[in-house]
């Protein structure tokens, strides 16, 4: 990795960790969502085990999206975004690195927290492993797709809610295949690898589409 990229990555990671508790708030939100669902559906352990992967996935989806609104906005508010745009570095790569750092700081802790929260939901060991694996493969896609929403709403003062509305329809495929793969590991209507590989391919697609769309939106936002 060239030095500017490394420098950007370090800066993003430092900021994510130092500002506002970073990763911790996301994990707390995840915990809160997972805790509140048994109060809604009842403490039936069999039911929870059946819908557990879905709960974990929806919790991770919401936690990722709610953490994304500051991804570019913080840089816009203090003028850094202007300087980033004119720094002479490929903006698509800049977006990709920012997303990577953001995922390391907020997505990875969610993946790490998932096995613990899975115990509350009475998941079997295989299911716990499968959910964690699918989250690890799928949450980068959520961050990258969410980055598109974050750059589209960068000029808006209260863009967080709109971001979620814009992005959620685009994340449906990730959710479907993530949950299906986790279910498939236990219930096997289909082999685990089929939905899991599709999930991986969705992540790879978003790796391309996310930075390009997001960079385009950022360029227009300065106008």
């Amino acid at each position: 990795m060239s030095s500017w990229a490394l420098s950007l990555f370090q800066r993003e990671l430092r900021l994510a960790v130092r500002v506002g508790g970073g990763a911790l708030v996301g994990v707390l939100f995840f915990l809160a969502v997972v805790t509140v669902i048994p109060f809604g559906v009842g403490p039936d352990l069999n039911l929870l085990a059946r819908i557990g992967p879905a709960i974990l996935w929806i919790g991770a989806l919401l936690a990722t999206l709610l953490g994304l609104d500051r991804l570019f906005q913080a840089d816009r508010d203090d003028g850094s975004l202007d300087l980033i745009l004119m720094a002479g570095r490929p903006l698509e790569l800049v977006v990709l690195i920012k997303c990577l750092a953001h995922w390391m700081a907020t997505g990875l802790p969610l993946v790490a927290a998932a096995p613990v929260l899975a115990i509350f939901l009475n998941l079997e060991p295989t299911a716990i492993g499968a959910v964690t694996l699918t989250l690890a493969a799928g949450t980068p896609a959520l961050t990258l797709i969410g980055a598109i929403g974050a750059s589209l709403t960068v000029t808006l003062r209260r863009g967080g809610l709109l971001l979620a509305v814009l992005v959620i329809p685009l994340t449906i495929p990730v959710l479907i295949f993530g949950v299906s793969a986790a279910d498939a590991a236990v219930n096997d209507p289909v082999p685990f690898m089929t939905p899991f590989l599709i999930l991986c391919s969705l992540s790879l697609i978003s790796l391309v589409v996310g930075p390009f769309a997001s960079a385009a939106a950022l360029r227009f936002s300065s106008d």
Binding site: W4, S7, L8, R11, R18, D77, G79, L83
Partner: peptide, 30 residues
């Protein structure tokens, strides 16, 4: 990309040290 723009906003991150702030722009700006 031959210009430095110095606007009303300082582009300084309060959470980073002075040195870290400066080092980032040194490495990042081509």
């Amino acid at each position: 990309e031959h210009t430095h723009y110095f606007g009303h906003q300082s582009a300084v991150k309060p959470a980073l040290s002075v040195k870290e702030n400066l080092a980032f722009w040194r490495d990042f700006t081509a």
